[in-house]
């Protein structure tokens, strides 16, 4: 069981709660969501509590993440998009911290469950649709009719645009989920080789150096992936929001 690479995604109930036949138990996943939120919130809140004019190292980290997301959003969606800044920043920080926390051994990775990433993606697309119709009314549908397309091609292009729009929440959620899942499985498999090879005496121990090195290397890669996926998620969110703000493209 210790070598089962799937075991790390197992959900275990800590406090069983059942309402109306649905299981709303407080699980390890819930606990790590709380931990993610608490860690990110506490870090951002405590490092900026001195409000230093000249920032310390940790305050710089908070400020850098703020400016990083702010410039990302401003570049993608313009200054009008800044009203979504708290939303995009929350998403980025939540995904990033969840990914990073998941890299600790024995920790649960919140974003390795498709339902979590899909819920977040639906939240993004839902925001885009609701805000898009609120701001542009029916004009939001221009999103599906690119300008400068010959009349005959319009039905085809609209079909393609609609499919691409509908596949957005899927690609957004599956990308993050699959990256986290695959990374953690790979890590676990290579780490598992180390223990199982070590059982074969001296030769096995010598041979386990290779998977050990791989594990170290992949751990490094996973840190990159953790950041990169949070970044990609946030960037795509910014682009989709831009569609809601400026539908004619």
């Amino acid at each position: 069981m210790a070598n089962d690479p799937i075991h790390q995604f197992q959900i275990s109930k800590w406090v069983p709660i059942e309402i109306g036949g649905l299981d709303f138990s407080f699980t390890n996943a819930s606990a790590f969501m709380v931990a993610t939120v608490a860690a990110a919130g506490a870090f951002l809140f405590l490092t900026t509590s001195s409000r230093g004019l000249v920032p310390g190292r940790l305050q710089s980290v908070s400020e850098m993440s703020y400016e990083f997301v702010a410039s990302m959003l401003r570049d993608a969606a313009g200054s009008q998009g800044m009203k979504f800044f708290p939303f995009v920043f929350s998403l980025f920080m939540f995904v990033l911290v969840a990914n990073l926390l998941g890299l600790f051994p024995y920790f649960f990775t919140v974003t390795s469950h498709i339902i979590v990433t899909f819920a977040l993606a639906l939240l993004v697309i839902g925001t885009v649709i609701v805000y898009g119709f609120m701001k542009n009314g029916i004009g939001f549908l221009k999103l599906f009719v690119p300008s400068g397309v010959p009349g005959i091609l319009i039905p085809l292009v609209v079909l393609i645009e609609v499919i691409s729009f509908l596949s957005r929440p899927i690609s957004l959620s599956v990308r993050l989920f699959a990256n986290m899942l695959a990374g953690h499985i790979t890590l676990k498999v290579f780490a598992g080789f180390v223990t199982s090879l070590s059982a074969f005496g001296f030769v096995g121990v010598a041979g386990s150096i290779l998977p050990l090195a791989m594990t170290v290397a992949i751990t490094g890669l996973e840190f990159l992936v953790a950041f990169l996926q949070a970044y990609v998620f946030a960037v795509l969110t910014c682009m989709y929001l831009n569609d809601a703000i400026h539908p004619g493209h």
């Binding site: 959900i11 709660i17 649905l22 299981d23 709303f24 138990s25 407080f26 699980t27 996943a29 819930s30 969501m33 709380v34 993610t36 939120v37 990110a40 919130g41 951002l44 809140f45 900026t48 703020y66 800044f85 708290p86 939303f87 920043f89 929350s90 920080m93 939540f94 919140v110 469950h113 339902i115 979590v116 819920a119 977040l120 939240l123």
Partner: peptide, 25 residues
Amino acid sequence: TFPSQILWLAITFGLFYLFLKKAVL
């Protein structure tokens, strides 16, 4: 596990969003 995950995600992410929007940002 979906209902539980969605519920707790909504609670935690919602609180996180409010906290960031009102206090941190």
